[in-house]
């Protein structure tokens, strides 16, 4: 590409590459030029019809009143209406049928699960984790351990009305000493390993009865009926050691520390209307007022299907 031009009369622009590839200056075809000028004419119409000219305090709105957001909204409403019409019978069935009947209808059940994914992600996953995988000290929903029962109606009740965990500090009488707490903690640890009758934890077992732990956790460490109290005989811990700053009085290192803290400070223990230091927080809000009955039903089915329910 330089001054030397072997084709001086051909009308090229003088841009020559690789010896012989050159740029010519041929006029475009007439039809093309006409379309080009027609394009200019169209600009005027567009400028009048659509928002176009920027002004000091905004822009011309155009005679059509068109905006991108409006167009989007219209398309979205169209889609929503289409969906509503398409699944109207299923939604109707979800709203009117009792849960026990819905659970028998495989098709409806799958529909409920499919339409709950977003609801769960928006409202539940913040605490219970994606897919119900749990978070530290928020219950896992995908396992087989249910504090308030894993039946579909129990799950519905938990979501609809919420649940508040409740465990007194230092036993039901509030009179367990630090030494007694250490002993009962040993007993609870042994229970989880299936060694509740071991002579080495006999002292703890006695305190378990004395402290009236049996009232909620059951005589064997397993609640007689679901009441929010943890099953102490299984391998799942409701509260794991987590130093999240909610406790200034002790430092949890092991699972045993966590058990000690729970017994010492209880769950949701209040004094003068305020939660005491180190007490466990365990509150599930009530969702029925927020989501309505139909969506709660839907979510109950979803949660039931996560872990297989009971």
């Amino acid at each position: 590409m330089a001054g030397h031009n072997p084709w001086p009369n051909e009308g090229n622009t003088g841009h020559i590459w690789d010896e012989d590839i050159r740029e010519l200056d041929n006029p475009p075809p007439l039809w093309w030029m006409l379309a080009f000028y027609a394009g200019f004419v169209m600009i005027v119409f567009y400028a009048i019809y659509y928002p176009t000219i920027p002004l000091a305090n905004g822009f011309t709105k155009g005679v059509a009143g068109w905006t991108a957001v409006k167009e989007y909204q219209e398309s979205y409403n169209e889609l929503k209406a289409w969906r509503k019409a398409k699944f109207a019978d299923k939604e109707e069935a979800l709203a009117s049928k009792p849960l026990s009947e819905i659970m028998k209808d495989e098709d409806l059940k799958l529909y409920a699960v499919a339409t709950s994914k977003m609801l769960f992600g928006d409202n539940c996953a913040a605490c219970h984790g994606a897919g119900g995988m749990g978070n530290p000290n928020f219950p896992v929903l995908a396992d087989d351990d249910w504090l308030w029962g894993g039946h579909i109606n129990q799950i519905y009740a938990s979501i609809a009305n919420g649940r508040v965990g409740n465990m007194p500090a230092r036993g039901l009488m509030g009179n367990l000493t630090d030494d007694e707490i250490e002993k009962v903690a040993d007993y609870v640890m042994a229970l989880s390993e299936g060694k509740g009758n071991d002579p080495s934890v006999a002292a703890g077992k006695a305190i378990f009865a004395k402290g009236m732990c049996v009232a909620c956790h059951g005589p064997t460490g397993k609640p007689v009926a679901p009441n929010g109290a943890a099953n102490l005989t299984d391998k799942i811990w409701r509260f794991a050691p987590v130093n999240d700053g909610s406790c200034t009085l002790m430092n949890e290192q092991t699972q045993r520390d966590a058990v000690v803290r729970t017994i010492k400070y209880g769950v949701n223990v209040k004094k003068n209307g305020h939660l005491i230091d180190c007490t466990r927080r365990a509150v599930m809000p009530s969702w029925k007022p927020r989501l309505g009955e139909k969506d709660v039903k839907r979510l109950a089915i979803y949660v039931h299907e996560l872990g297989g329910g009971q």
Partner: peptide, 8 residues
């Protein structure tokens, strides 16, 4: 999600 779950 979850990759695995511990059972009771």
């Amino acid at each position: 999600a979850p990759l695995f779950v511990q059972m009771s």
